[in-house]
Design a protein around this nucleic acid. Structure first.
Lengths: 225, 225
DNA sequence: CTGCATGATATTGTCGACAATTTGTAATGA
DNA sequence: TCATTACAAATTGTCGACAATATCATGCAG
């Protein structure tokens, strides 16, 4: 990935972007709170120029919202926002599946299957440890998306939507009874791709993400907010 | 629309963004050419700060590509790029149709139908005048997209993909024998939405855009490049 | 003659200060 | 008491200059 978000940071703006991004996703900067440029510049010890560059990129991943001459605020999480976001994700990752079934090499597919087997074993060992679960999930989806070989789609899912999705998961404390089920679903998806059945992979992926959405949606309502 | 692209320009960065955007879309700044910050700053008579803000937004609509410490280049048009872009568009505007069928009010739907009738009559009068055709087409798609009521989808299609789509159409000189057929297709789509048949509207929209893509694709190959 | 190191030039990244605009506050009048 | 206005403070937008990096040309060794 060569995007300004995933490349290793070469510029001051890159570095501060990663830090603020993490702080927002993990809720250390509260949703809805105002972003003060002077304050952050002082906090991260740089001038406002690279900071503003970072803010522009944060707006690009929908983590903040800016209004001219009035500054930026961290996004608020809401059920409506979650639904809108996941509607997009379902469709886009479904498309990724169809394209992956067409464009992934047998080798690449085999690697993903291998990856899943690895995850399954380590997962059994570290049962319930949600970090590994999430990392594995991210890795799986990531590979399918790259497999689509569509640069716009890749950019969209990995750069512009990924962090907001992650923010919902992190801040609503997704661990999960869904873990083992998710593994089976992943397996079914990659198998469909291996059989070059894009239609089926698309359907399974949309269901997979739909289930995930309902899961988060429940946590949301349960946990108030 | 409140996005930094469609709001009327309040800041210097806004203004220069519109100018450069237009220049790139219309090919006055050649595809593949390097963007020189000092040169553009002098040309548009402002400092590099707002210019760089504008460049960040141009990157966001995929009109330029930046590499750290090395500057920006205008994107090149290619068949592969066109296909990738339209794959996305088909899926996304298909989704917009499904959502629009669910969320548009009867009033909003009636307004679009009215709009189409107006376009049909003015179009007969100004036969072949591609500007009006395109404006009408844009307007139609625009309304459906807004009708989806999904802010992420709206932002994506209207802000981040719209200008690149337009660049392909403009630079490959799309006028068209497809004009009258497109009107029929629009009519069919809004009728499906009026019947609350999201599935059908989705299908028809994907076909509509697919036909458009093949059309441009032919021009591309014909015209070399 | 080709390939690589070296240095001059130009471009991008960053800084601190100033200008323009908004936000918050207090005073005024109804 | 409430609304409105004027003013003060703070924040964002813009500027010009400097530092860090890349690009290009030149010269040298093989």
């Amino acid at each position: 990935m060569q995007s300004p978000i995933w490349r290793d940071p070469v510029t001051a703006a890159d570095r501060v972007l990663l830090e603020i991004q993490k702080a927002i996703v993990e809720g250390q900067i509260a949703p809805g709170s105002k972003i003060s440029e002077p304050e952050l510049a002082k906090r991260y010890d740089l001038s406002r120029a690279p900071l503003r560059e970072a803010l522009a990129r944060l707006e690009r991943c929908h983590l903040i919202e800016r209004t001219p001459n009035a500054g930026a605020r961290v996004v608020k999480l809401s059920v409506a926002g979650l639904v809108s976001l996941y509607q997009l994700r379902e469709t886009l990752e479904g498309l990724a599946c169809r394209l992956a079934a067409e464009h992934m090499s047998d080798d690449e597919i085999a690697q993903v299957q291998e990856l899943l087997d690895q995850h399954l074993s380590t997962q059994r060992v570290r049962e319930g440890e949600s970090y590994y679960q999430e990392a594995g999930d991210v890795d799986f989806h990531y590979r399918i998306i790259l497999g689509s070989k569509n640069p716009y789609l890749i950019n969209l899912l990995c750069d512009e939507l990924y962090f907001l999705v992650r923010m919902y998961r992190v801040q609503l404390g997704m661990n999960g009874p869904r873990v083992s089920r998710a593994f089976d679903e992943h397996k079914a998806i990659i198998n469909a791709i291996a059989n070059r059945d894009g239609e089926l992979a698309d359907l399974l992926m949309r269901r997979h993400i739909g289930a995930s959405r309902r899961n988060i949606e429940n946590h949301f309502k349960q946990q108030g907010n």
